[in-house]
Design a protein around this nucleic acid. Sequence first.
DNA 1: CTGAAAGCGCTTACAG
DNA 2: CTGAAAGCGCTTACAG
Lengths: 336, 336
Amino acid sequence: MNKQVEAVHSVGRPTMKDVASKAGVALKTVSRVVNGEAGVTPETTKRVQGAIEDLGFRRNESARLLRTGQTATLGFIADDWTNADQAAVYRGLEDVARANGYLLYSGSTDRDAQREEQLALAMCARRVDGLIIIPTPGSHDYLVSEIEAGVAAVFVLEPPAWAGGRGPRADAVLPDERDGARTAVAHLIAHGHRRIGLVSGDPAAYRATQLRAGYTQAMAAAGLTADPAWTTLTPQALPGAPVTAVLCADRSQTEAVIRASTEPGRMAVVGFGDFPLADLVSPPVTVLSYDAMVIGRTAGELLVRRLAGEQAPPRTVLVPVRLIERGSAEFPPQDR
Amino acid sequence: MNKQVEAVHSVGRPTMKDVASKAGVALKTVSRVVNGEAGVTPETTKRVQGAIEDLGFRRNESARLLRTGQTATLGFIADDWTNADQAAVYRGLEDVARANGYLLYSGSTDRDAQREEQLALAMCARRVDGLIIIPTPGSHDYLVSEIEAGVAAVFVLEPPAWAGGRGPRADAVLPDERDGARTAVAHLIAHGHRRIGLVSGDPAAYRATQLRAGYTQAMAAAGLTADPAWTTLTPQALPGAPVTAVLCADRSQTEAVIRASTEPGRMAVVGFGDFPLADLVSPPVTVLSYDAMVIGRTAGELLVRRLAGEQAPPRTVLVPVRLIERGSAEFPPQDR
DNA sequence: CTGAAAGCGCTTACAG
DNA sequence: CTGAAAGCGCTTACAG
């Protein structure tokens, strides 16, 4: 058998050095052409470009960035990608990143604090310029030294916890959940409801505390007193509960409430978080909703400005939460 | 006023060189300690570790990887993050990436071929080891030189188009849509349906062609002849169409069909892609579904194996598509 | 207009 | 057991 040994081209990719020797110029001249710097004769330029074409050279950005001292990279740490809000946050962030020449590292935590820390530190070890984090419930003190070392961080959807108490701070962009709950409860009251419940899952969760605050505010403003038991309802306990309306803390609670409902239409349901067929469920579900893309965009802009050198104390930006009425707040006929 | 000028610490992060001089050892010794290499006395090790602590040193992975010649980075290019399937694909991929020490770059295309190219090439310029792409409809010839240069690529959810015809190939992991459609249509036939429609949006889209193939196969197997008009239905045209059942190509088509339905229950609806409240819509929607996380995991494993040096011809892996029955295939009473 | 040297922060290969 | 030198692929600062 005729064993052919083909001349194997150098395995790695061509470098500027390869281009330089092929074109018969110095490394620096190739660099000038690649960067479009002035001061290279048209002939030299053409020769270098020819060598670039022939070799299929493409500059190694990682090497350039190492020398430059930055990385033009931002890290996004999500909680659960299948959550539509998080996907939209990402999308808003991506727009800002693209417009400013940043590439995005990403990862998800599954609400596991240890996984968040591993991911964030791995990204810091790659020297990301900034971090956008949907925080897990754990402490974020692990980030202190990184922030001090110059990494810009912004938290979205939830505020971070700092074990140190006052701790070091970072920017945050959050939906105004308290105000949303206030609006929703006021709306239910305006429709005649007096006994209103809250289905919030873990009562210690951040959103639960925010919704309770807004709820309490709206009830007080209407001169109503709420039975504490009303604010700790579960989907299972709902059919027998003495309330005529409920506010659910998230999509999964809303879905559970709809499923647990033995008599559709007996109770008015307001859900936090819109979903595709909310208007086709019977009765249609009125929801609280916010523009998650705006949250991502705002977070990105805060980061980009800080990376451009802006010096300002950390701030928290609240994004409005709006009520989308679907007629489900009508007071149940049988109770009129 | 008493103007205080505080001693500003060196702005950048500490490097191995800083650690070395603080510990009074050579750079190489620090490297040995950081990498856990043998052959350093306990005392020296302790001294170096002390310096690392004091300085808050954390190795720059980007620099290490530059020297090493790889990047331990994979790039994921999505189409639309709000699509639940894509989010699940990402999640499966992420598991494999984590387990193998890879970090993920990500970006989305909005089905814009030019944006896909920009993203992919930007990632290649950063020297990602591999690329996982949900392809846009355009040609992928721009990737040929990158693949030849050693970037591993795998396409998911849809196969890529190569303008060159036979073109160079890459691995692909796809849901078995044709088989899914065959199963769904056979199921409808078994329930008494004879006039079955297809609502697929753009008939030239990849999924539409696959579904049509499976549809045709099932109809032929049952000895039924389909009116060509039945396979190009739209949600708007459906109320007057002469069919008793329809298969919808994706969630948005399914939703549009449900909305356009003037007489709920008159027509059996099977949707491609499951959704949260599919069982609560009236009538409940039977769906075709596949495990998108498995697709992401499989794609990641193919990539990891190739990056480990596996030499094999490009292959396409099909992931099963299953029917989730919800009773909506029952033949409409009025037509019995 | 063009280039040789040094350096970004690490690792590799080799000495002592 | 420890270290000085060279190099990964680029850019920066300086000469000629």
